[in-house]
Design a protein around this nucleic acid. Sequence first.
DNA 1: ATCTTTGTATAACAGTTGCAAGCACTAGAG
DNA 2: CTCTAGTGCTTGCAACTGTTATACAAAGAT
Lengths: 140, 140
Amino acid sequence: MDKKQIGEKVDQAASTGRMKLGELGSFIRDQRKAARLSLRKLSDQAGISNPYLSQIERGLRKPSAEILQSIAKALQISAETLYIRAGILDERRDSDTISAILQDPYLSEAHKRSLVEIYNNYLQLSAEAPKAATVKDVTG
Amino acid sequence: MDKKQIGEKVDQAASTGRMKLGELGSFIRDQRKAARLSLRKLSDQAGISNPYLSQIERGLRKPSAEILQSIAKALQISAETLYIRAGILDERRDSDTISAILQDPYLSEAHKRSLVEIYNNYLQLSAEAPKAATVKDVTG
DNA sequence: ATCTTTGTATAACAGTTGCAAGCACTAGAG
DNA sequence: CTCTAGTGCTTGCAACTGTTATACAAAGAT
């Protein structure tokens, strides 16, 4: 990888970061408008300064998780929604139930397998259900 | 609420915050030691400076979600674990499995109830599991 | 004994986060 | 028309986050 390619990689990473902040900001602004709130109203309710909220919406600043939490609460949406958009949290997979079972910290491997199997049996009894997912499908 | 009570409230909140950072730091140190890693080794693997990791472990600094993510990855634990301890994420994610079962669009109510019951039975067979969660607990 | 590793202290520093004060503009009321 | 209230943004700044470099004491290894 020569210098030109390294330069391109860096530029790409930088603009990707900015895009993420812009998306988050746009999303917050959209939610705010959907809630019929002015920027000042939302900032008051979230307990943050209105210039700062403005900067966040325009993607100029990267707010901490705490600020995101405050905004989410004021918007009456889940904080996780904002965390996901901010890149703090991963997006849940499609096969939530199996995924949740497999990641449960309190289940043994044997119990996990049993639950997955029971779950798949139940799916087969439901005409509207998708094709039964396997453990392999989930772990990829 | 008179001034004395307000003062006590503020003091309590402040010390609660400090306790939270100390808990997080202790947890990270415990995990590090369980993994038989030196502070310098973990900081290298996490890509953060060792004095900073030391300060985090001693509860002197409040790391960003990104730093927590790096530490979690180096410790091979989920970032969510650290987020919860840092107060970024609610512990209600602990009942992910039940929550996922209940929200699964392809399960009938009867099947949901059955799966939850089986899950709770498995929890009771595990000494380390938390107290069995009920459907009511999850839905709030 | 010496040398290495470990965790911590400290200071200086750069960059970032979030705020307060203030500005420019628009819409509506009188 | 003027004035007021509301709106979103600009700017400068303080505090914080995270780094680097250096140093030290204690523990562990040879």
